[in-house]
């Protein structure tokens, strides 16, 4: 079994087609939608957590690519600007997972990609605006 968080960019012509449901029907994959939006220019953006057998996962992604969907791993998406972070801890108040944690030895805020679900709540709650979205 594999579990990956991925960001899907749908081109304009695919936005109104049921693409992702095929992952369940034809490729035995489970998905959990973490974020979905359609931009004013009608490009779709979907952040998914996908679970399934590795072979199914690879075939499923192959299928998505064949539909013209651009795929990125999620870990690239929320980044911390290390220069700007002051390690104050204001982000801890809004982070729904344990992705932002206070190290009680150094008192620095640890950011762990793996647990980040890209909800973006920290982005605006960060006083020095150190959390950046990169899609």
């Amino acid at each position: 079994m594999v579990r990956h968080k991925i960001v899907l960019h749908f081109p304009h012509e695919q936005v109104d087609k049921p693409v992702v449901s095929k992952l369940v029907r034809d490729y035995n994959l489970d998905f959990n939608i973490l974020k979905a939006s359609i931009t004013p220019r009608e490009e779709g953006l979907l952040v998914l957590e996908v679970t399934g057998e590795e072979a199914d996962y690879d075939r499923g992604l192959e299928y998505l690519r064949s539909c013209g969907v651009d795929i990125q791993p999620l870990s690239q998406d929320i980044r911390r600007n290390e220069e700007r972070c002051t390690h104050c801890g204001a982000c801890l108040a809004v982070c729904p997972t344990e992705a932002l944690r206070l190290d009680r030895e150094t008192w620095e805020v640890r950011f762990s990609d793996d647990e980040c679900v890209a909800c973006e709540l920290c982005v605006r709650a960060c006083p020095p605006r150190a959390m950046e979205v990169h899609y």
């Binding site: 002051t86 801890g89 108040a93 009680r104 150094t106």
Partner: peptide, 25 residues
């Protein structure tokens, strides 16, 4: 407060600092 949790009106509440202790140090 620094333990990460306090109790307010019988409820356990997570804490977050706005003052950077690492930078104070």
């Amino acid at each position: 407060l620094k333990s990460g949790r306090i109790v307010v009106e019988g409820k356990e509440v997570p804490t977050a600092p706005l003052s950077s202790y690492s930078r104070a140090r």
